[in-house]
Amino acid sequence: MKTASRILGSAFFNEGYEVQDAPRYGAERRGAPIFAFVRADNKAIDERGVITHPDLVIVADDSLVTVPAAGVMQGLDEHAVLLINSHVSAETWQQRLNTKAQVLVLPIKDAMQNRAELPYVSAACVGAAARLLGMISQNALVRAIDEELSHLAADKINTNRTRAIEAFELMTTHENCIQQRPSVSALDYQQPEWVELPFEDARISAPTIHASLTSVEVKTGLWRTMRPVIEYDRCNHCWWICSSTCPHNVISVEDNSPVIDYDHCVGCLVCVAQCPPHAIKAISEAEAKQSAVEQAGETT
C-alpha cells in the first residue's frame, strides 16, 4: 500500500497538484494490514498525518472491511466513496456494510489465488482510483508507475502498467465521482471532549502487563491472504513437523491430529512447504471465504 500511495501521489504530482503521501507504520510486519494516505490539492497542503474524513477509501484486501480493528469504515459518511478489491458485488457490500458511503468494487483477478497477482494489486487500485478521481490522465498514471517502480524489471513494470490501465478503464462509468470535501469550519465544529487526565498512581499507570498470554486477543489471522488446509486423510501423523516448525505457534496436536488455529495463522505456509506427505494445501482466503459462504448457503 505504500507503493500504491506513492504511485497515486506521483500521478497527482505529475498533473500539477500539490501532494502528500505517507504510509502509516505500525509494529506489524510483512503480512499485517497496512494503510497509507494520499492528499492532493491545488494549493499547498497544511493538514498532516492520518486522514480522519477521507473522500476515497481503497481497500486492497476485502477481508479487512468487516474487521473493526482494521478501521476501514472510520470516517466514512455520505460524502465518501469506498472502493473494494473484491469478488463480491458492490450491491452486496453496500447492503452488508449498511454505510452511507458509496461502495464500488474493483473485481479481483483470478490469479490472485496463487499469490502471483498480489504484487500488482497496488497498481490496479491506483488505476481505478485515478479514474474515479477524474483528475489524473492515463499518461500521468503510467508515468507515475514508471517512476515509482523503476527499480523493478521491465516485465514487472509492464504488468503493473497493464493492471493499472485495465482498472482505469473498468471505472469509466464512475469517472469523476469523487468530490473534495469542504474543510472543517471554525464557526461550526464538533468540540473536542477534552478531559483532565486523572492522576493514577504507578500501580495502575506503569506500562506493565500484569498477566500472561494476552496477545491471543490479537487476531493475526487477519493478515492471511493464503490459508493452509490440512487434508487429514493424507496426514501420516509424523513427529508433528507442522506443529514443531510453525513459526507462529498456531498448530497444536489434538487427539493425535494437527489442528490449525485460523484466528492466529498468518498464512506463512511453512507447514505447506514442510509437510512430508504433502497433506497441507494452500488455498486463497478469498476462495476459502467463498466456499464457506456456499457451504452456509447449502445448510440453510
Binding site: G31, W240, P247, V250
Partner: peptide
Amino acid sequence: RMKDLPTTHLLGTGAPMCAGCG
C-alpha cells in the same frame, strides 16, 4: 527423537512478527 519434542507450545499466539519469521 523428534517425537519427543513438545506438541503443546508455550508462547502465546498473536505476536506481530513477520510471516515466516525464523
